[in-house]
Amino acid sequence: MKKLNALLFNQGGKCFYCDAILDMNEATLDHVIPQSKGGKNDLDNLVVCCKYANHAFRDYSPKHKMAVIKELCCLSSVCKKIFPREEEIIESKEVEEPQIELQPEKKKQDSKAKTTQNQLQPEKKTQDSKAKKTTKPNISIANQLLLKAIAAFEKEGKEGVSSQIKNKMLELNPAFKEADYGFNQFNKFLLHAQEQKVVTLKKQGKGSSYVIKKKP
């Protein structure tokens, strides 16, 4: 204790390494040359430092100690950087805790956002599906098929009537359906073609059949 008091007085009451003011509770004796490396236990080989520096340096050689201090480049806080005080560790944890508590809340918000997005996706798919269903093929495709069927009969020197023309159209394109173009009857499709001046229709007898010719 006498050595400690004498050295602390000679050092101006400060830690030899970090230059911090020491009280007796934190002051400890440090062997400049560790006893494990042959250092003596006399005043020439002793300095007073805070217990944190003493604990951190352990049995470092003087050269090793100075290298650490030089690397840290901050004599006034060297001990804190080497070995943080207990109260600083507690303060650090207190600062970090709110961030940890916020993470679950953030996950909840992300989860809600994903749920909302997933709920919207089926609705979008339904709208896309409706749009596809309501989109009609180009009527000009059906008109071209109709003209090809009429041409096939004309090539044979015949006039085609409604049922014959439809059969020929199906022969040329089995996928043809007047319903795909918005007509629930083939005759309605023919009447529309006549309105577009694609063909001319002539009633055949008392039935609903038409003789179909290309528009001149």
Score class of each variant (00 low, 15 high):
201 L>S: 05
191 L>P: 02
104 P>I: 04
33 I>P: 04
23 D>A: 02
26 E>C: 07
90 I>K: 12
213 K>S: 13
214 K>S: 11
202 K>G: 08
122 P>K: 09
95 V>H: 07
104 P>V: 02
207 G>R: 08
57 F>W: 00
132 K>L: 10
135 T>K: 14
21 I>M: 11
45 N>E: 06
156 E>C: 07
33 I>G: 02
194 Q>L: 09
36 S>R: 06
185 Q>G: 10
181 Y>E: 04
64 H>A: 15
138 N>R: 02
6 A>H: 10
33 I>W: 02
160 G>W: 04
21 I>E: 15
81 K>V: 08
208 S>P: 05
9 F>C: 13
9 F>K: 15
64 H>Q: 15
126 T>Q: 13
2 K>V: 07
198 V>F: 00
120 L>M: 14
193 A>R: 02
35 Q>E: 15
85 R>A: 09
153 F>P: 06
54 N>F: 00
100 I>D: 11
23 D>F: 01
174 P>Q: 00
3 K>P: 08
2 K>P: 04
81 K>D: 09
198 V>I: 14
168 K>M: 11
170 L>I: 03
138 N>G: 05
108 K>N: 14
12 G>A: 05
95 V>E: 09
154 E>K: 09
184 N>D: 15
197 K>Q: 15
76 S>E: 10
14 K>Q: 06
29 L>Q: 00
212 I>C: 03
13 G>H: 06
99 Q>D: 15
108 K>Y: 11
60 Y>E: 07
130 K>N: 14
24 M>V: 15
59 D>E: 13
39 G>D: 06
177 K>Y: 07
189 F>M: 12
51 K>C: 08
21 I>V: 14
80 K>T: 08
179 A>Q: 09
174 P>C: 05
83 F>Q: 08
38 G>W: 02
174 P>K: 06
46 L>R: 01
140 S>Y: 13
52 Y>F: 09
148 K>C: 08
4 L>C: 01
182 G>R: 05
29 L>F: 00
211 V>N: 08
9 F>P: 05
35 Q>K: 14
8 L>V: 05
132 K>Q: 10
42 D>N: 14
97 E>L: 15
154 E>G: 04
23 D>I: 06
155 K>V: 02
121 Q>V: 12
210 Y>N: 09
47 V>P: 02
193 A>C: 14
121 Q>P: 01
64 H>Y: 13
189 F>L: 09
8 L>I: 04
216 P>A: 09
144 Q>C: 08
183 F>T: 04
139 I>H: 00
170 L>M: 05
171 E>K: 02
89 I>L: 12
131 A>D: 13
98 P>C: 03
59 D>V: 02
21 I>L: 13
76 S>A: 10
212 I>N: 00
186 F>A: 02
8 L>D: 01
188 K>F: 09
58 R>V: 06
